[in-house]
Each structure stands twice: as C-alpha cells, then as structure tokens.
Simulated assay, not measured.
Amino acid sequence: MSGLEIELAGERVVLLPQKALLWPRERMLVIADIHFGKAASFRALGIPVPRGTTTENLLSLDALLEAWDIAHIVFLGDFLHAKAAHAVSTLRAMLAWRARHTRLRLTLVRGNHDWHAGDPSELLQVGMVDEPFDVGPFSFCHHPDTAAAGYVLAGHVHPVYRLSSGWESLRLPCFLLGERRAILPSFGAFTGGHVIAPLPGERVFVLAEQSIFPIEIR
C-alpha cells in the first residue's frame, strides 16, 4: 500500500489513495467524515439503502493499520452521522473493532453531524475535542474556514473533482491543498461528494483505483 509523500507546513506527510492522510513523525492517521451509521440512519427513515457500510469502514481502517505504523487516529468530524447511528448493531461492530485495537489512541474533532448525533459511546474510548485541535504546525478542524493558528487540516466538504473528456465526465474524490489549509476527501462509504472549483494556487490530488495523482489546474 503506497501513497504520495509531500511537505505541508514543514512536515513530511503522505496522501493515501485510501482517502486518508498519514503524518509519519507522529504515527498519526488523519481521516475526515467517516459518517458511521449513515446507512442505518437512512433505513430508520424508511429509505431502503444497502447494509454493511459500517463494516466496510472498519475493514478500510484495518487495512491502513496493517499497512502503516499508526499509533493515533484523528477523525476530522462527522464520526457519527445522526442519532440513529447509535443503533445496537452499529455499536456492536464498532466495539468489536475497538477491542482489537486497544492500544490505539482515537481523537474526534467534533463536526456538525457530531453535535446532532451526540458523542460516541464512552466504551469506544474516543477523546473528544473541539476545533481547532492544535498539534505541532497543524490545526485539526472539521470546517475548512475555522480560524486557527496552524495549517488547517479539515473535512466537511467531501471534495470531488470532475474529469471531463468530450461528452464523458467522471467525479473522483480528491485532496484540495492550499497555502493555509488542506481539505481531505470523505473517508466513509456511502457519503457522496461535492464538486470543487480550485482557486488559483490550490493543488488537487485525485484518487482512483488505489492510485493518487496530481491534476494540472489551468
């Protein structure tokens, strides 16, 4: 499992095609918008959507933990999608995953969905913080426009980039990197995306089929 190594705020970080960012010096994995229980929340409203998104999210985390030396995961908000995400089946799956990773530190920077859903169960042993959460040169946030002292790493937007060729177009998740902030793609399954229009000076890195590549902005 490989990624793209770049420098941000004087630190070496790795952009991962699995829609996460790795900060090797801190052994930290940064994830935005995992939205546990989103499918369950839709089903609670009577909307027929596929099951298994929580399991898919947890398996994706497991794959990253196996591939990289990680001691700390920072979730950039929207850990739970809604109050219905506290469903017994969702919590049971998450607790089973936590039991396999008891030494792993978890920190959640509260996002807008977290304020509505409520904090996750204390049994999951997730440290709760408000934005900005400052570590070294970085300010970990949910909202990209949060006033912060450091270089902002944020989510919320679920950025995707539209690639077009003639009549064909394709929307792909991406990282959006600017001078003072970076917006991470949504990590969670079944979360959708928002097409971004990069500003001058911003860089876009698109994710496709376990690969990551830069887009030349004209």
Rank of each mutant, 00 (worst) to 15 (best):
S2F: 06
L4H: 10
E5K: 13
A9R: 03
R12V: 08
R12W: 00
L16W: 00
P17S: 05
P17Q: 03
P17L: 02
K19A: 02
A20T: 04
L22I: 05
L22K: 03
W23A: 02
P24W: 01
R25H: 11
E26W: 05
L29G: 01
V30I: 15
I31F: 02
I34N: 00
G37F: 01
K38L: 07
K38R: 14
A39V: 04
S41L: 04
S41Y: 02
F42W: 12
R43W: 08
A44E: 13
A44Y: 07
L45H: 13
G46V: 08
P48M: 12
P50D: 03
R51I: 04
G52P: 07
G52I: 06
T53C: 09
N57G: 08
L58K: 07
L59F: 05
S60Y: 00
D62W: 03
D62S: 14
L64C: 10
L65M: 10
L65Q: 05
A67N: 08
W68G: 02
W68Q: 13
W68Y: 15
W68K: 09
D69T: 10
I70P: 00
I70H: 02
H72Y: 06
V74K: 02
L80R: 01
L80M: 02
H81W: 01
K83R: 15
A85G: 10
V88P: 00
S89R: 03
T90F: 00
T90W: 00
A93W: 00
A93H: 00
L95M: 09
A99F: 00
A99H: 01
T102A: 14
R103A: 12
R105F: 00
L106C: 03
T107R: 10
G111S: 07
H116F: 07
A117M: 06
P120A: 09
E122P: 13
L123N: 11
L123R: 13
M128V: 14
V129A: 07
V129M: 07
F133K: 06
G136K: 05
P137R: 15
F138I: 08
S139F: 08
S139G: 12
F140Y: 15
H142I: 09
H142W: 10
H143R: 14
P144C: 07
D145F: 11
A148Y: 05
A148D: 09
A149D: 14
Y151S: 11
A154F: 08
G155P: 04
V157S: 11
P159S: 12
R162L: 12
S164C: 09
G166K: 11
W167V: 10
E168R: 15
L170F: 01
L170K: 06
L172N: 03
C174H: 03
F175G: 04
L176E: 05
L177N: 03
E179Q: 13
R181S: 14
A182V: 06
I183M: 08
P185S: 09
S186I: 06
F187A: 05
G188A: 12
H194C: 10
V195F: 08
A197S: 15
P198G: 14
P198T: 10
L199Y: 11
G201T: 12
E202N: 12
R203M: 14
R203L: 14
F205V: 11
F205L: 14
V206M: 11
L207Y: 02
L207D: 02
A208Q: 15
E209W: 11
Q210D: 15
Q210Y: 12
F213C: 14
P214W: 12
P214Y: 12
P214K: 13
I215Q: 14
I215L: 15
E216T: 15
I217W: 08
